[in-house]
């Protein structure tokens, strides 16, 4: 896997975790079952997200920041050849290619970074 894609996946997963802490029912479970303090947890997550964002290559970082500001997520999984960001098909050759996650690819339709899920 391309190291920058790995970073992007980590960032996207952390955004998902962040979202989970803002989502009322899930936040309630985190507080009541796991005794988590959401405000402190969000601060920790934000600091880590900032740190990881700075480790992105400048070109990738620019696109990542732009996408994060305009879309709900900057990285989209590809399942069965479909970008799950915009639900438009990606080129068939990309999906069947070995080592398809060894390079950075973006969706031609929505511009999100793509991650091919097996």
């Amino acid at each position: 896997m391309h190291p920058q894609l790995e970073l992007l996946l980590e960032l996207q997963d952390m955004h998902a975790q962040r979202q989970a802490l803002r989502d009322e029912p899930l936040r309630k479970v985190e507080e009541e079952v796991f005794d988590l303090r959401p405000v402190e947890a969000l601060e920790l997550l934000d600091a880590k997200i900032e740190e990881l964002t700075e480790r992105l290559d400048p070109t990738v970082q620019r696109r990542y920041v732009d996408l994060s500001e305009t879309l709900d997520r900057a990285v989209a999984p590809v399942l069965n050849g479909i970008c799950y960001g915009c639900f438009v098909a990606t080129p068939t050759a990309w999906s069947s290619e070995a080592g398809r996650n060894d390079r950075i690819t973006v969706c031609a339709h929505c511009g999100r970074f793509l991650y091919y899920v097996d």
């Binding site: 790995e6 996946l9 980590e10 997963d13 952390m14 975790q17 985190e30 796991f34 005794d35 988590l36 303090r37 402190e40 947890a41 920790l44 997550l45 880590k48």
Partner: peptide
């Protein structure tokens, strides 16, 4: 990647 994410969650508070 999954291990890292689980670790990050544990760092916010034990599960």
């Amino acid at each position: 990647i999954l291990f890292k994410m689980l670790k990050r969650r544990e760092n916010l508070g034990s599960t």
